[in-house]
Nucleic acid binder design. Structure first.
Lengths: 205, 205
DNA sequence: GATTTCTTTGAGTCGAGATTCAAACAATTG
DNA sequence: CAATTGTTTGAATCTCGACTCAAAGAAATC
């Protein structure tokens, strides 16, 4: 039989399992999730998966947590990466980072897939709620800075507008990963952009 | 054994099965769907379910189709039910009919549940696309009528604005049925309304 | 290097649910 | 009313994947 024994530490193995599970979910969906697939993707045996996660739900929850953190991190980076003195380009960077790249975008696909558990699982609902709140916070900051600088003249409170932008992204994003044939990625992107221009009164977006 | 034999027609039985399956899906989700549940809900045996739908996917597709039609019909009715001469109240009626009533709203829960198959199943994608397009068409009409009457002064093309309204509804709706703790139904409703007022320039909404 | 403890494996067991199917029966036909 | 055809049933079987667990191996400890 193959290599058997006592490898490094637990955290490394857990991370490998989480990433493997993420892959498996992205490929076959939550319904089709099989321990075998996770084990294969992580290069271990089925027994190992159960050894670390006797409760598969915990693993899925971990996948969700990781996906949320990664996504938020990438958006934060997009924001931070844009010229600090230029609110418009910072908002623009945020807007560019929120939609799936393609119909098959793995990150967004995974997030929507996991979010669907939220209606039935408080843990997942909490993660989804947290993602939403933090995205809203990001946009709120971006909008407020722009308003304070005089670059934006907001059509409503920054907080309300931020809600709207996040909801728009989620709505369009959902249709994109769901293969809505009438809605192309760049079209959705342009529509959101237009909306942002309108509510900020900033043509330079 | 119970009653056995040759009852009425096929269509009646099929409708019963579709509605039973809808119930079952709403209760336990797509993942937890069992033939037994469908059979029980419809008051028939498991064998009968397979007799009419050897391919369970066909039944699920039928459920989706029905949900889409029902939902569209109810929105159309809402629209038609409002004073024909009053574009504002017609748009308002439309806006009032698009969000889930509660976190547990059965209709919306079912729709989101079914939509998630879209990424993996062309049939479901088509239904979702169709729903989106027809909702957009409804809003487009409502907006254009208002603009033609001079009641609305649109901030962009009716078609674009309609897209935005539907996407907003979908985004907020998704969070609501997913138990987003920070987003109450009436808050979402108010946010959409505010947005609609802004883009139509119609304070009376 | 012997002992202890933690990991890993994979073959075997178990169970839930799908699927099959022969028997039973009802409507229809002639 | 006999024969035919379309429906329905539910018990038996089949399938697939979760779960168990004894054996084997590797690090750590002494």
């Amino acid at each position: 039989m193959g290599k058997v024994g006592r490898p490094r530490n637990q955290t490394a193995r857990r991370e490998a399992l989480v990433s493997a599970a993420g892959l498996a979910i992205a490929q076959r969906g939550l319904e089709g999730l099989r321990i075998k697939d996770i084990a294969d993707a992580a290069g271990v045996s089925q027994g190992s998966v159960l050894y670390y996660y006797p409760e598969l739900d915990d693993l899925v929850l971990e996948v969700h947590r990781g996906a949320v953190e990664n996504f938020l991190f990438s958006r934060q980076q997009a924001y931070d990466g844009a010229a600090a003195g230029d609110p418009a380009s910072r908002l623009r960077a945020l807007l560019d980072s929120g939609l799936p790249d393609t119909m098959e975008d793995a990150v967004h696909g995974l997030l929507y897939e996991l979010h669907r558990r939220a209606g039935r699982s408080p843990g997942h609902a909490e993660l989804m709620t947290s993602l939403f709140a933090r995205e809203v916070a990001l946009y709120t900051t971006a909008l407020e800075v722009g308003a304070a600088t005089g670059v934006f003249s907001l059509a409503a409170s920054a907080h309300d507008l931020a809600h709207g932008l996040v909801a728009l992204e989620d709505g369009y994003g959902l249709h994109i990963v769901s293969h809505n044939a009438t809605l192309r990625v760049d079209r959705a992107h342009e529509l959101i952009l237009a909306h942002a221009r309108a509510v900020t009164g900033c043509a330079g977006l």
